[in-house]
């Protein structure tokens, strides 16, 4: 880890690599995040409507519950788990392949700090970009809920909108963004570690990729608990 965070000799090159990684790891994940978020937002709205079917419960609470679920758990934790699968396996297999095809050795021979050159831009890019994916997920998820509310007769869309703004706390968004930034760091560093120390052949790269997804998923769940305890209680 010390090698990864050593001061870059040429910050300009790292800047370019960060932009490249933002596109490769962040921008290219927008589609997946959007698709999953819109469906989950719609499903949460439907399930809330089914389970809160009571004359004593106001309908706008469906919108409220959808918003809270998206902000507090789905758009940070569940999206992070999905990204651990997509981005984590990508990072581990990319760096693992570079290890077994001697590309990392080639960088070392050139006098390049390979850990910093390969991993630091990925960490910076994901820590900066993944929280934006969280915001996007919250937005699209609530839109998904609105669409299902408007398309079915479970509630009046105006009630859904009212619920979205009911008891809104900005801190919930901050909490979600902090969680995602931490999860981004976990996904990237754990996956890069698994790839960087891959040995052998393509089979081992596959195994390191699986290890990366499993380890980062478990770490995400653990830190979800810790961060919730620290930030919300």
């Amino acid at each position: 880890m010390g090698k990864v965070f050593s001061i870059p000799e040429k910050p300009g090159i790292y800047g370019r690599r960060i932009m490249y990684e933002m596109e490769a790891l962040g921008f290219n994940s927008i589609g997946l995040t959007a698709i999953i978020s819109i469906f989950i937002g719609a499903v949460i709205t439907l399930q809330m409507a089914i389970n809160l079917e009571s004359p004593f419960i106001p309908k706008y609470l469906i919108g409220y519950a959808t918003r809270e679920t998206m902000i507090l758990e789905f758009s940070s934790t569940v999206v992070a788990l999905i990204l651990a699968g997509k981005v984590g396996s990508n990072i581990a297999s990319e760096i693992g392949t570079m290890r077994i095809t001697e590309q990392i050795d080639a960088l070392e021979i050139m006098g390049v700090n390979s850990a910093s050159y390969l991993i630091l831009p990925k960490i910076v890019a994901t820590v900066l970009f993944f929280p934006l994916l969280t915001l996007l997920s919250i937005l699209i998820g609530t839109i998904g809920g609105y669409i299902i509310a408007a398309a079915t007769d479970i509630m009046i869309p105006a009630q859904y909108i009212e619920g979205l703004f009911y008891c809104f706390r900005t801190y919930s968004i901050v909490y979600s963004l902090i969680k995602m930034a931490v999860f981004a760091f976990i996904i990237t560093s754990v996956s890069a570690f698994c790839g960087y120390y891959a040995k052998g052949n393509s089979l081992e790269v596959g195994k390191s990729s699986t290890r990366a997804v499993v380890a980062s998923s478990i770490a995400i769940m653990l830190f979800n608990l810790i961060l919730t305890q620290l930030l919300l209680t």
């Binding site: 000799e9 040429k10 090159i13 392949t97 570079m98 095809t101 001697e102 590309q103 050795d105 080639a106 021979i109 050139m110 006098g111 390049v112």
Partner: peptide, 26 residues
């Protein structure tokens, strides 16, 4: 300078970018 058995060129970089990398860095 080292020439590896498989070349060890960076897959995500073009020919020019691969050759230019040491110049960029040093």
């Amino acid at each position: 300078g080292m020439i590896f058995q498989g070349g060890a060129l960076l897959d995500s970089s073009t020919v020019v970018e691969n050759v230019k990398l040491p110049l960029d860095l040093f």
